[in-house]
Design a protein around this nucleic acid. Structure first.
Lengths: 202, 202
DNA sequence: TTGCATAACAGACATTTGTCTGGTATACTC
DNA sequence: GAGTATACCAGACAAATGTCTGTTATGCAA
């Protein structure tokens, strides 16, 4: 028999283990928890897990496999890193994406990522080669950094709402604002995160 | 019997279904696929899935539940987001970290994250409030952005190696270089990634 | 002591899930 | 026609997984 640990201590470690596994994208089975902690009885793992559910640290779906989740929608998901976004819209772009990034999810929104191409947002610390992660949404507020499809190409700019319609502002004095006609501009999403990889990860 | 669809058409739809489920964080079981497409035989779903694996659109782990994944799999890692780093070094700081970030794993190196505090690196697009992710290492090359402990406090600067020793350069004309005496400066790690959260995630 | 809580174990049962063998039907090619 | 490929179905087996009943041990408090 494993040594009996102080109340709650093992449970705390189990919580962290399960949490990590969930964040990594694959919640463990009861028996995987058992194995990880070298319990000799499945029930030991199960008791701890059920306690964690009872106290609200975890939630689960009865009777299904690998269905322990974190409460409050703090989950992760794989975000497709889009290559070239063209007029076809996002659907096609997602199909032929370059790869996937990990990101925290809030709610169940659809997210996508895009590589920054020019200097136009340098003033906001968004440099060429950076990756922006955006939540897909058709509208945004004044001041938001958005991914917009203007004519035939996706661009990243700061949105300004004026009484005449929308304006897309660069954050760089060398670039003037874009004031598109409504029919030639679609907001694809709002940028929620910027990442720069200084090493590796092309 | 369900109507027979053109070759590959159902499979294409199954691929999209599975991919979506994986991106959402919970790969489906074979029977969930069966149900979603209203097949009456599990085998029908399985055949399609196996074909997708055979042609490389999906990968899976034999015999385990919910183990269909996307190819080019992302290895993940939880990186401790350190609060205040002081002379004690990283050990203590990791103990009392503010939380964890998800990051792609590169090798098995120790990583840590730190919140940017001042304007001194603004010229390199590293702004106050950003989070830098660093690989722990005691040395770095000239030109690397590093996290260094100078005297009593952790700072993020660009490293320059001169014949007199090391120099820490800010990327902002308002800040002069720091030329520390060797014994009062320790390199904690090299910055490999910069993140900025434009929404939520304190 | 008794009672109660926690931690851990042993062994089983039941459901879910992955896998397999064999079948029917349609379409295409030779 | 025979042969082959695809799509789909039926039913079963087996492994993985969730769940349950009952047990021992330790510590704490009435």
């Amino acid at each position: 028999m494993s040594p009996i640990t102080p109340p709650g201590e093992t449970r705390e470690r189990i919580y962290r283990f399960v949490r990590r596994r969930i964040l990594e994208g694959l919640p463990p089975t009861v028996r995987e928890v058992k194995e990880a902690f070298r319990f000799r009885a499945v029930q030991t793992a199960r008791q701890h897990l059920e306690r964690l559910v009872a106290e609200g640290s975890l939630v689960k779906v009865q009777g299904k496999s690998r269905l322990y989740r974190l409460p409050g929608r703090v989950e992760t998901l794989l975000v497709p890193l889009l290559g070239r976004v063209q007029a076809g819209g996002l659907q096609v772009a997602v199909e032929e994406c370059e790869g996937y990034l990990l990101a925290e999810r809030r709610g169940s929104e659809e997210m996508f990522a895009l590589r920054v191409q020019g200097e136009s947002m340098s003033g906001a610390g968004i440099l060429p080669g950076d990756v922006v992660i955006a939540r897909r949404q058709p509208e945004a507020s004044s001041g938001d950094v958005v991914v917009a499809l203007v004519g035939d190409e996706a661009t990243i700019k700061t949105l300004r709402l004026s009484r005449d319609g929308i304006e897309l502002h660069a954050e760089n004095p060398d670039f003037g604002p874009i004031i598109p006609r409504p029919e030639e501009c679609t907001i694809l999403g709002k940028v929620v995160e910027v990442r720069r990889y200084l090493e590796g990860f092309a």
